[in-house]
Design a protein around this nucleic acid. Structure first.
Lengths: 331, 331
DNA sequence: CTGTCATGCTAAAACCTTTTAGCAGAAATA
DNA sequence: TATTTCTGCTAAAAGGTTTTAGCATGACAG
């Protein structure tokens, strides 16, 4: 039933087969204009039989809406970007919108290349994501005359951005430990120049008060080890619980504690941050941790860009989405 | 300098500003037709000044090449799919081709939805990827009249597909252990109904010969633990080295061996499979493992689909790309 | 019987680009 | 001088869709 040209049926074919004009066919299919119900049904039936699907390029050219949006991501597909991308895509697909994925790999040249390609393709909007929360998005983005949404990344003032609520997540963790009657809560986290690390540490500090003690380091399992070593090397009372800045750090911490035959959570309870299942489900005992709900964050970003691309006005804001606590064995 | 319509400059604007016709402008910019060098330079200069970039939709409509390709992926962005996607994208971007990422999540409805969207957008080709190597690709794919390439997934006969060379990877691992004078090599791997697991086990068997011993199980750290437990529970000689089917399994194995105060690699050498750095760099000692070169696999798939989309004929084949061994501390 | 209006349809323009065919004028050839 | 060839350009068509303006037809009101 395909055309000899190897291509697909066009609306011409539908119109011809139905014995109407192209415009009537278009109107019938889209429910626009005035059409006799009978004609409409007939056209639709025939379009169905022919397997007609409109050419998105032609449609986009005319309507100036490509029904595609671009996602510019910073890192080579880290574990943070991806659940978000899945969330975004999940929302878009049901609205007939497709997703261009552009990995910029932190390379400005690639960044520009991808951005230009997206503009050439008349994308309806762009989602900018960065793993390193403190990295500034490329300034070109702000001058665009298509909507931009920032996810997990700091947008310029006047923009819409979505973040996990790091402070609330930290409070969740600490309060969970306090609920277990722990009072000497230590916080072992990643690099201080990460905004997320600072926000979490601050929230922790506010709740715990004077006894607060923060150890900044790296976002690695190794640092978890090293930190425990340091804690046990010095005199004074031991913590009865540890709030870790990432699951990887928590894994290092737990392994180091096990090496010292400390019982978890009996002697020391441990809470992580990320709910990266490949880590958190594999520690012994399994890790109680904070989930940043990245997929939901993707949903929100997707909905936002969808609305903006339709011309809806969204008030500029930094939306902080609540984290949840996933209780497993370690606390 | 932008048009009042909020849009971008069109080739009209360029032609007008240069005082030539649209066709001359097009010819000058694309180097087609016969153009006076002077005119050509002038047009190009003006296009540059105006920041003109051709509308990809209009161009695609006419040339019937959208310069976009779709990547249909099975899983919600697992660690296998993503390095490949990065590799694909890396190749494409330099040819001005963009990548639609479609996560089908193993849902046939989503699969169809994404596929239709891709066809509507006139993509120049599709790359199909599946994490579970034994999953059949949707049969719709075979009837398409645009090129399809399979990566990490079994294509139907007559198709082009790319895989890591599992057999060669397994041989690499075993021969490395033999080079360390290990003779009692045990193979702990994942589910037997994975083709990759069977291929690797077979290659291992061929080299090791009579002393071969394969333990199939799950692709998890836990199974690594359990397997070691089982090995140490039974009588008879212990292995002097273990070839694991994945880094996660290897991690479980190493942890279990450490718990028993077995020295690694002194008493038992361990080799993994995947080179998933977040695991392999964090074991103690760091894991010697097989890298499947997924990014390179992505490169190859990208080049293949690019060629096919240009009308080049590629002979149908299953290409197996060599794995490499990454030596760290564990063997 | 004339004028107004609603209905159902269509022709044509528009979106932006590439490409084909062809037109003048100049230069080269016969 | 008359013809051909080359050069540099342009008008127009094409690609597939949506949308605007308008055309008959028939119903209805005055």
């Amino acid at each position: 039933m395909k055309q000899p040209g190897g291509g697909r049926h066009t609306i011409r074919d539908v119109a011809q087969a139905a014995g109407v004009s192209i415009s009537t066919a278009s109107n019938a299919l889209n429910g626009t204009g005035r059409t006799n119900p009978e004609t409409r049904e007939k056209v639709r039936r025939i379009a169905d039989e022919l397997g007609f699907r409109p050419n998105a390029l032609a449609r986009g050219l005319l309507t100036r809406r490509s029904h595609a949006i671009g996602m510019l991501t910073n890192d080579t597909y880290g574990r943070l970007t991806l659940p978000m991308a899945a969330g975004v895509s999940e929302i878009l697909v049901d609205h007939g919108v497709s997703l261009f994925l552009c990995a910029t790999n932190n390379d400005p040249r690639l960044s520009r290349l991808h951005l230009e390609a997206l503009l050439d393709r008349q994308v309806d909007g762009i989602i900018f994501t960065a793993t390193r929360i403190d990295l500034e998005p490329p300034p070109e983005l702000t001058k665009l005359n298509i909507p931009v949404v920032y996810a997990f990344a700091q947008g310029p003032s006047g923009s819409v951005s979505f973040h996990p609520d790091d402070a609330q997540g930290a409070r969740l963790a600490v309060q969970h430990l306090q609920g277990l009657n722990r009072s000497r809560i230590l916080h072992i986290t990643g690099e201080q120049n990460y905004r997320a690390a600072r926000i979490r540490a601050e929230a922790y500090h506010e709740i715990v008060g004077a006894s607060a003690q923060v150890m900044f380091g790296e976002w690695s399992e190794e640092w978890g080890h090293a930190a425990i070593e340091r804690v046990f090397a010095r005199p004074g009372p031991r913590p009865d619980s540890i709030f870790c800045g990432s699951d990887e750090i928590a894994r290092g911490v737990i392994d180091a504690l096990r090496d010292r035959d400390i019982s978890i959570p009996g002697d020391i309870a441990v809470v992580g941050f990320d709910n990266w299942e490949v880590v958190s489900k594999q520690t012994r005992p399994p890790l109680t941790t904070i989930d940043m709900e990245l997929k939901e964050l993707g949903h929100q970003a997707g909905l936002a860009i969808l609305g903006l691309s339709r011309g809806e006005k969204l008030e500029p804001r930094v939306e902080r989405l609540p984290c949840t606590l996933v209780a497993r064995g370690s606390a």
